[in-house]
């Protein structure tokens, strides 16, 4: 089987798996997205060797590489909120930009310093 066909078959399998996760969450009336539970379930299946890595590796690689494509229609969804964006868009932008900068700097610096402290302790 060519690599391309293998990837496609694996992607189809992963779509079915994702669909099944959503279905289970719906039947159980749980307010947790199936995709988040799906990460945990797939991880456990890999860890216990029920699912072998080579069954999904190519498909996973493709899905992760094209991740950004899947967000594009939601981004285009901004056209529905023209009035809101004209009235509050600039303020929303300020909120998001400032908050991202603070969050990234705080998280990154904390991890960098904790990791450094750990290294000095170890040596």
């Amino acid at each position: 089987m060519s690599t391309w066909l293998k990837s496609a078959a694996q992607v189809v399998f992963l779509i079915a798996f994702s669909w099944l996760m959503n279905l289970i969450m719906e039947i159980c009336h749980l307010n947790i997205p199936g995709s988040i539970v799906g990460i945990v379930v797939l991880f456990v299946l890999l860890q216990t060797k029920v699912v072998k890595l080579e069954w999904i590796d190519l498909g996973a690689k493709w899905l992760l590489a094209e991740m950004l494509l899947f967000f594009i229609p939601s981004a285009v969804g901004i056209v529905q909120y023209k009035d809101l964006m004209l009235a509050s868009g600039l303020r929303i932008l300020v909120v998001v930009v400032v908050s991202i900068l603070v969050v990234m700097a705080a998280t990154g610096l904390m991890a960098e310093n904790l990791a450094k402290a750990k290294e000095t302790n170890a040596s």
Partner: peptide
């Protein structure tokens, strides 16, 4: 296309 976010999120289990 949007529906693919589900499976694409789930396969984050692979790099983990």
């Amino acid at each position: 296309v949007t529906d693919m976010i589900g499976p694409a999120t789930i396969v984050l289990a692979v790099p983990i």
